[in-house]
Amino acid sequence: MSFEIEASARHVHLSNDTIAQLFGFNYKLTPVRPLSQPGQYVSKEKVILKGPKGQINNVSVLGPAREHSQVELSITDALSLGVDPPIRESGHLDQTPGITLINGNNSVNLNSGVIIAQRHIHITPEDAKIFGVQNNDIVSVKTSGKRSVIFNDVVIRVSEKFATRMHIDFDEANACGFVKGMRGTLYKK
């Protein structure tokens, strides 16, 4: 039994307040293409990330709006920006560093919200039963391909709102020779 692995590039999730500050009052994000997770999409909008040591241009904004703004980076991105975010699950933003988001002449200084996303598997309840896992379980995953690796400390996230996919960042994708359609096999600890 296996599942698809997806590489997730650096991106931001914005609150309605941050969207208003960057793009204008009552502004709505413009969907460009859907993501594999139902209801999630890449928007037309892009931002610049500015840290103490540098900046990264044209960073994708994912929609829809969230309760709190969040920036997801790889370790390589964090080093180039000069920030030191923890590895965390999405939405777990306590005691995380901040960063500046820029759109044209508008900018927002986030006091917190920068993370390196913990590698994880979004999984439907039906698939969770098949794989014998529960929400928040920690598992290992062996990748397919010419440069297969075993990723440890993969968090299981179960919801009827999910499609079953594993998400890794670009540093992890490069380490395993990621190609579109790559599959993973789950090993329980």
Rank of each mutant, 00 (worst) to 15 (best):
P34Q: 13
L73C: 14
N135D: 13
G51R: 06
V141T: 04
A128S: 07
K46W: 03
V83N: 03
L81I: 10
I116R: 10
I56F: 09
E126V: 11
S74C: 05
P64R: 00
V59H: 13
G113T: 01
A128L: 09
V114S: 04
P64K: 05
Q134S: 02
V83H: 10
G145R: 06
S80Q: 10
E67Y: 02
K142H: 04
S140C: 14
T76S: 15
S107L: 00
N57H: 08
P31Y: 04
Y41E: 02
I130K: 11
I99F: 03
I75H: 15
E45I: 08
N111A: 03
Q55M: 07
H92T: 15
K129S: 09
V59M: 10
D127W: 00
V42R: 11
N109D: 13
I99T: 08
R88H: 15
F131L: 02
P85F: 04
Q40E: 09
N152L: 11
Q40I: 02
H120I: 00
P64E: 01
H68A: 13
I75K: 15
L110D: 12
G145S: 03
E89L: 13
L49A: 05
P86F: 04
R66Q: 08
P86Y: 12
L81P: 09
F131P: 12
E45M: 10
P97K: 03
S144F: 14
K146G: 15
T76M: 02
Q37M: 09
I123R: 07
N152K: 15
A117P: 00
N152E: 09
S69A: 14
T100Y: 07
N152Q: 15
H68N: 15
D127K: 02
P125T: 00
L79Y: 14
V83D: 11
T76A: 13
G132P: 08
N135A: 01
I115A: 07
S36V: 07
Q134A: 13
E89H: 13
I102L: 02
Q70S: 15
G104F: 15
V141W: 13
S107D: 10
I102V: 15
K129A: 01
V139A: 01
T96L: 08
P38T: 05
S112P: 11
I102K: 06
V139E: 08
